[in-house]
Simulated scan of single mutants.
Amino acid sequence: MSLIAAFFGLAYLVDAFCISTTFKYLWNANSSHGAVEKLLQLQQTPPEITACVQCYHYKDSRSSTHTRADGTTEQRSESSHERINTHRATSEFQFEHWRDMSELPYVVTRPFDIVRLHLRIKIKYGTEATARAHAAMCQALRDLHANRDAHFEFKETVVVEGMVPHMLLLPEDGSLRPWWMYWQWYAASVFVFLNWPYRMALEASTVKVTYVLAKEVYIAEP
């Protein structure tokens, strides 16, 4: 029973501090002016496009040994289906030129609101030759590495260095920020099991804005 309680307690904390975006917004609070400057920097930063193949297999386990309180052992029949990651390979897409196609960052500001800013990245391959080169890179990675184990998964990530996906934008004078809208108060709400009301209060007191960092890449000068 204690192990079950520990598991659910750990899952609760992971959800509150790692999965939930509430903590991420509060941790990355910034002024509207500071956020605009950050977005301008991100517009001047090239993207990194990386493909990854992860090979794996499953291991079935059907028995385990347990020790009783008196020191004797017993064999119990238990089944588990565990994934074992093995070979992993990555490849970064190489391009010669790129340009930023994002909107002006001033669209994210709201003079009389606190903003929950969510950043996303969108990649466009500027020519057919660039799109074919990207597809060929991904296919070559699969062909070389996908057969290293029984199963594989293919993923692609796009990163712009310095990007923080979630930010809380505050008016310059900070006058609209309530006393409770700090990460320390959110942490306190987690430990007294009031984080869900806190999340709803934050959503009700702020405006969510999504900003797309749009990048266009080319393997040759357009």
Rank of each mutant, 00 (worst) to 15 (best):
V53H: 11
Q54M: 13
C55E: 08
C55V: 01
Y56M: 10
Y56Q: 07
Y56V: 04
H57Q: 02
H57N: 13
H57M: 03
H57I: 07
Y58C: 09
K59W: 09
K59I: 07
K59D: 06
D60T: 15
D60S: 08
D60V: 15
S61C: 05
S61D: 12
R62A: 09
R62W: 11
R62H: 15
R62T: 10
R62L: 06
R62Q: 14
S63E: 15
S63V: 01
S63R: 08
S63A: 10
T65Q: 06
T65D: 08
T65R: 01
H66A: 00
H66Q: 12
H66V: 10
H66W: 02
T67L: 02
T67M: 11
R68G: 09
R68Y: 11
R68S: 10
R68I: 03
A69V: 11
A69S: 14
A69Q: 08
A69I: 02
D70H: 08
D70I: 01
D70G: 03
G71S: 03
G71E: 07
T72K: 05
T72L: 04
T72M: 01
T72S: 12
T73W: 03
T73L: 06
T73Q: 14
E74G: 13
E74Y: 09
E74D: 09
E74F: 08
E74I: 09
Q75S: 15
Q75W: 05
R76Q: 07
R76K: 11
R76W: 07
R76V: 15
S77E: 11
S77V: 12
E78P: 04
S79A: 12
S79I: 01
S80F: 00
S80A: 12
S80Y: 00
H81G: 13
H81P: 04
E82D: 15
E82L: 10
E82H: 13
R83E: 13
R83K: 15
R83I: 00
I84F: 05
N85I: 09
N85P: 11
N85W: 14
N85V: 07
T86P: 01
T86R: 07
T86A: 10
T86H: 03
H87M: 05
H87V: 12
H87S: 15
H87G: 05
R88S: 04
R88H: 08
A89S: 14
A89N: 03
A89I: 01
A89E: 10
